[in-house]
Write a protein that binds this DNA or RNA. Structure first.
Ligand SMILES: [Zn+2]
Ligand SMILES: [Zn+2]
Ligand SMILES: [Zn+2]
Ligand SMILES: [Zn+2]
Lengths: 154, 154
DNA sequence: TAATATATGTTATGTTATAACATTGCAAAT
DNA sequence: ATTTGCAATGTTATAACATAACATATATTA
């Protein structure tokens, strides 16, 4: 059920969409930010900050440092283009930025593939829990780890 | 809605319950493990590993090292006595160990108080999402950050 | 041009967590 | 009673993750 691969078409669409959003919101989609976004979104699996850093170094053949990557990640997260998976200190691209506030995740421990699962009923249920506790949500981390269909059959 | 304080009675009950569970399951509730558990549960708020380490050093007046604390935490988490909050790299005591598999959390960003919110409807909704995606859950991180009633009124 | 703001480069360090190996203490087997 | 095995802890070192602080560059705009 978790898709094995995102197609080139999907990847390009994602990049274009972010490009478009940045243009129309006057956000500087600079070279570094674009590079980091592409590395994340093309990776297909959650990727770690220092892995991104390694790729940047390979691509540019210049010295790069952690703050460069973390700043780009911060920008991408702030604007909803990328999510952080707190349970595994890794980052994933968002395939539907700006369409909702929160994204929830299924993460396969075996093959590392993940899927955003943002159904409204889940969102509603979380809202209700908050309301019931008179709690005002600012952000939600929902990360479901386990095994995808393929991996649980093996 | 988030309770300000756990009473001494509640704390003692928690410690006794863990003691009991360990005894009846032949788990070694050693001095260090007990100390770490007490520090966590008495703290009332999420506590960080190195804060625990500091407390241990204060209590014992002996050199202590990170692995000591992390090993104790691992033991406590494995047995459901303590939870890790991945979104803030902190640890909290569980006030109803062994009564269910997963615990979900409301965490106030302002006053740092937290609450376990393990209602079945939320659990069911997460299960359904997993089933719908043919996904077998091994563990779930659900951490809702925001403001509690008191803090959102200020 | 000068002033301002935004982004990036660079060095250093802070924070969180674990690997690897030595030592201790206790209990079962010989 | 000694040896063996095992679980827990001690200790050193380092890995992995993240940010502070300040310098430099680049682009807008007053
Ligand atoms: Zn998303
Ligand atoms: Zn899988
Ligand atoms: Zn719990
Ligand atoms: Zn609060």
């Amino acid at each position: 059920m978790i898709k094995k691969e995102k197609s080139i078409t999907e990847l390009n669409a994602s990049i274009s969409r972010v490009d478009e959003i940045c243009r129309s919101n006057n956000l500087g989609f600079t070279d570094i930010r674009r590079q980091v976004f592409e590395i994340i979104i093309k990776n297909n699996k959650p990727i770690k900050a220092y892995e991104i850093l390694d790729e940047i170094r390979n691509i540019t053949n210049k010295p790069s440092h952690p703050p460069t990557v973390y700043r780009a990640i911060d920008f991408l997260i702030e604007n909803g283009f990328v999510h952080k998976l707190n349970s595994i200190n890794s980052f994933v691209g968002c395939f539907h930025p700006k369409t909702h506030e929160e994204c929830y995740f299924l993460i396969c421990k075996k093959c590392n593939l993940y899927q955003e699962c943002c159904d409204d009923s889940l969102k509603d249920r979380i809202s209700k829990t908050a309301v019931h506790n008179k709690f005002v949500i600012s952000n939600t981390t929902l990360e479901i780890e386990g095994h995808c269909l393929d991996c649980s059959q093996k």
